[in-house]
């Protein structure tokens, strides 16, 4: 199973969880995270969220993030799925799954991967509500979340 998938298609969390567990009897902790499209962002009602990415580079960058997580923590298996194309409120956007012997590593690695995905991987979101459409800006809080991992190395 490839560790990285960028796709227009939706994913099934139950199936992804099963795939993370296959042949890993020693993995006592499996963390799965799902990011979804909110119906409100900074007070604006969202009708559609369009996700653009840079094919090829995106997959490489996500793989680099996973490889960094593997260097920092003892983790057995990782899976990242990121959707692209038009999405609606409540749609799933992103899946991060980490299997490890212990929960501390699994939680930390999943959070690290999510924080880095938000600030390093080549995705761009465009939000539409009614006749208005705008490209989103990177949030300072996301930038700070990534920098936090650089401080405690």
């Amino acid at each position: 199973m490839p560790e990285v998938l960028v796709s227009e298609s939706d994913f099934n969390v139950g199936e992804e969880y099963q795939k993370l567990c296959v042949d890993l009897p020693g993995a006592g902790a499996v963390v799965t995270f799902v990011g979804r499209v909110r119906d409100l962002n900074e007070g604006n009602e969202i009708a559609t969220l369009e996700l653009q990415h840079y094919p090829g580079m995106t997959e490489t960058l996500i793989q680099e993030i996973i490889d960094q997580a593997k260097e920092r923590w003892d983790i057995d298996r990782t899976r990242v799925i990121h959707r692209v194309g038009p999405l609606q409120p409540a749609d799933q956007i992103v899946f991060v799954g980490v299997a490890s012997a212990h929960r501390k590593e699994a939680f930390a690695a999943a959070e690290f991967i999510m924080d880095y995905l938000k600030t390093k991987a080549t995705f761009w979101k465009k939000e539409s509500s009614g006749s208005d459409a705008k490209w989103l800006e990177m949030k300072d809080s996301d930038r700070a979340a990534t920098e936090r991992w650089q401080d405690d190395t």
Binding site: G35, L51, H53, Y54, M57, H82, I93, V94, M114, L117, K118, T119, K120, A121, T122, F123, W124, K125, W135, L136, E137, M138, D142
Partner: peptide, 10 residues
């Protein structure tokens, strides 16, 4: 050659 504005995925 690609020009990349700040990313907003996740």
């Amino acid at each position: 050659l690609a020009f990349l504005p700040p990313v907003t995925g996740g």
